[in-house]
């Protein structure tokens, strides 16, 4: 079923919307959650919560790209769940590694909340990504939005792992400079 038809089902308050969404985007959202949480149960709960959020959001919202809309919800829910359950959790998974890699991108030591509003930061990062070559942009998003491992990115884009790492390294460095110039930090 086309995305537009699924959104119409939401607007018509048809429960079939949830079945269609699960069928088309269940694995996609599950993978986003699982990349962050590394727990089957938690991931499934996040995906179910995603459907609920989507149900409550449409209407009034009418997302232009349904996959991104659902993915954003899943990602936010997963990050919240990750933060809530982080204490005492075992290591492993891609998120701690991704966080570690991003550590130096925001220059300065002051609290980010004091330096810049989150929305402003998001807009700045969006502009930055649009300034990148397409490939570097995709690699960066796969790593830090989808939280894919380097190997997964390498497989997805037919690249060597080292090339992916080099691209990420280069892009993080560019982002740090960009954010400095934009007055963040």
């Amino acid at each position: 079923m086309e995305d537009r038809e699924i959104v119409d089902l939401y607007w018509a308050r048809e429960e079939q919307a949830l079945e269609e969404t699960q069928s088309k985007y269940g694995a996609y959202c599950w993978r986003i959650a699982h990349n962050i949480l590394r727990s089957r149960e938690d991931s499934e709960e996040c995906v179910n919560d995603t459907w609920l959020r989507a149900w409550n959001a449409m209407p009034p919202q009418r997302p232009a790209i349904l996959s991104s809309f659902l993915g954003c919800i899943t990602r936010n829910l997963s990050l919240d769940r990750y933060k809530a359950g982080r204490t005492g959790k075992r290591g492993g998974g891609q998120l701690p590694l991704a966080l570690e890699e991003l550590d130096y991108c925001l220059p300065g030591t002051q609290n980010v909340e004091q330096a810049v509003e989150e929305a402003e930061l998001a807009q700045s990062v969006d502009r930055f990504l649009r300034s990148l070559p397409e490939k570097d942009c995709c690699i960066f998003l796969r790593r830090y939005w989808y939280v894919d491992s380097v190997l997964e990115i390498a497989c997805r884009y037919h690249m060597a792992e080292g090339t992916v790492k080099s691209s990420l390294h280069r892009t993080r460095e560019r982002l740090r400079v960009w954010l400095e110039q934009e007055g963040v930090g």
């Binding site: 996959s67 991104s68 809309f69 936010n76 990050l79 925001l106 989150e118 990062v125 969006d126």
Partner: peptide
């Protein structure tokens, strides 16, 4: 870093679709 990771959630849908 977490703030930066969360800020990424706000990037354009078109970019996410491209990466996907």
């Amino acid at each position: 870093q977490e703030k930066l990771l969360e800020a990424l959630t706000g990037v354009g849908d078109d970019l996410l679709e491209l990466a996907q």
